[in-house]
Design a protein around this nucleic acid. Structure first.
Lengths: 335, 335
DNA sequence: TTGAAAGCGCTAACAT
DNA sequence: ATGTTAGCGCTTTCAA
């Protein structure tokens, strides 16, 4: 049978209070003698404090919920790892949940997490709609938004990437290489993350005195299949362009594939810029020039912020906007 | 303030016992009238049972630990997702932990999980050494091994992939295409998973009456960098081969890159087979012929097994060996 | 059909 | 420096 605090107290001939104080390092007022004795007994009997019992009284579980669309999306493992690293550093654990961008699943998971009394939640929301979680309303579980900036009732903070800058920098890079006909392959324009990327693209063009053309902007999905299909179709229609800016690396990878199949060379014939810098972008041929999203950082900092909130740290930032960075590799060249 | 079972009981004018029974669907002996009343009150007051309190008495947390090397390794997101899907289906949550194949971290995490009273643990172990976790010894937390087959004290089951078959099938495919000089690029040969893959390679050669040559077998790391470096070196040394079997897709991707840089065409000059079928293997150029590891399945089935154990299901299999499958794409061709 | 009472393993005022 | 006591929110005998 498991040995409990009572057993240790009995063996040591002290009260559970004393043992408890020693467990929690609140031992200013414990004599060295009893401290040593109790510690010894704990070791001897392989005593492990029961966290559940602790949680019941302290109202803290040292557990954080991580609610993301899908860990298989190459975007999220980095973020998850960053989150887990910070959490572990601070003695927290992470429960992870996959929502598939399904609003119902999101609700279910959030509610489950609240029931399990997680101390806080890191949340990547599916849509732009505003959220209200009834359990969160009742129980003050702090939520930190990550990556996607949406309206959530009672949100405590957010960590995002300035995609406008990313969109701007990527386009500017292409422009500076002499490209003028630049097609922008966007994901679904249903949240600010996507919309701002496009705004950055337009702004860069304007700064170069080029009027953004509507038919150079295509809205699709964040998938390589879509990148492949749309470029194939574009080429079949005889569309001319020398620059291609893709809203994520997956789209870029599909696009490059389609280009190659039509015997167009990257970057000699078409320069391609991606977005994200997922693990494989440096592995494909040619190595992809892309905008690096600081995903690991986002995970890491969101947990850092959450824990600051939990521990009532003063003066934490409640709004971190990370700056993405242009990574020049081999898929772009002078026109 | 949170509303508790006591509040509901008070409002309904019944005892907490009655409410508890209703919460847990043990309401055979509850009158329809009080049942409805209580259910109504629960809804009205937005009552959510406190899982922590429940866990303290039932000794079940409905939480499972998932201990893996690194979620960023493209191998693991699939596995993690499979595990999470099954867990969610059964009302469990998953705490995930990254060990970086570090034995000390493994121990720490396992101990943390036991302290948090997870109901069971899914574990991908780093090394071939045998494990003994002192907390697990004391508290009967079932562990199911996944992917890597090692000795762990008190293990309850394991889900692995028959890598021998994979090694065999991949080599056979190359052999049937007429390749005779087949180089095998192995990862570290420190566990059965890796060793059996190599054994499968050798066996296939023998079946084709070809003596496996020691200098056709290279041991390195499961990384694209290594695949790139070793092939580059091989080529510089003037090594001749027309078939390349890589112990994982990452190695294959690096290898293909090196091949291309020396103007060797895949598959015209060299046929390449990978292992794993990670997400990107169909995105690279050319699409990679590979051995598909049923990673999602592994995660899914390991959790299924674990829950069977937890629920004392009779007759569950305690040893599942999944069969990998050859996926023929475009990186292999007739000699 | 319902409830009283004990207890899960721990912490935290408040005494002493 | 240490102990007494109450209680966190729930389940579970056992009795009524």
């Amino acid at each position: 049978m498991k040995v409990t605090i009572k057993d240790i107290a009995r063996f040591a001939g002290v009260s559970t209070t004393t043992v408890s104080k020693i467990i929690n390092n609140k031992d200013e007022n414990i004599s060295e003698a009893t401290r040593k004795k109790v510690l010894g007994l704990m070791k001897e009997y392989n005593y492990v404090p029961n966290k559940i019992a602790q949680s019941l009284v302290t109202k803290k579980t040292k557990t954080i919920g991580l609610v993301i669309p899908d860990i298989r999306n190459p975007f999220f493992p980095e973020l998850a790892r960053g989150a887990e690293d910070k959490a572990n550093e601070k003695g927290y654990n992470i429960i992870f949940c996959n929502t598939d961008d399904d609003i119902e699943k999101e609700e279910n998971y959030i509610n489950m997490l609240v029931e399990k009394m997680v101390d806080g939640i890191i949340f990547t929301a599916a849509s732009k709609r505003s959220y209200e979680f009834k359990t969160v309303e009742k129980f003050p579980v702090p939520i930190v938004l990550v990556d996607r900036d949406v309206e959530v009732e009672g949100i405590k903070g957010k960590v995002t990437v300035d995609t406008f800058v990313g969109g701007y920098e990527g386009t500017k890079h292409l422009l500076e290489l002499g490209h003028e006909e630049i097609v922008f392959l966007s994901g679904p324009l249903k949240n600010n993350t996507s919309i701002n990327r496009l705004k950055g693209y337009k702004k860069a063009l304007e700064n170069f005195n080029i009027e953004p053309k509507e038919n150079n902007i295509l809205e699709g999905e964040y998938k390589s299949e879509w990148g492949y299909e749309i470029v194939k179709r574009l080429l079949e229609k005889g569309k001319k362009f020398s620059g291609l800016f893709c809203a994520n690396d997956l789209i870029a990878i599909g696009a490059i594939k389609a280009l190659k199949e039509r015997n167009l060379k990257v970057p000699e014939d078409v320069s391609v810029v991606g977005f994200d810098d997922i693990y494989i972008s440096r592995l494909i041929d040619p190595d992809l020039t892309t905008i690096r999203q600081p995903n690991y950082e986002m995970g890491y900092q969101s947990v850092e912020m959450l824990i600051d909130i939990l521990e009532n740290k003063e003066g934490y930032k409640e709004n971190i906007d990370l700056i993405p960075k242009l990574i020049i590799r081999k898929s772009t060249a002078k026109r």
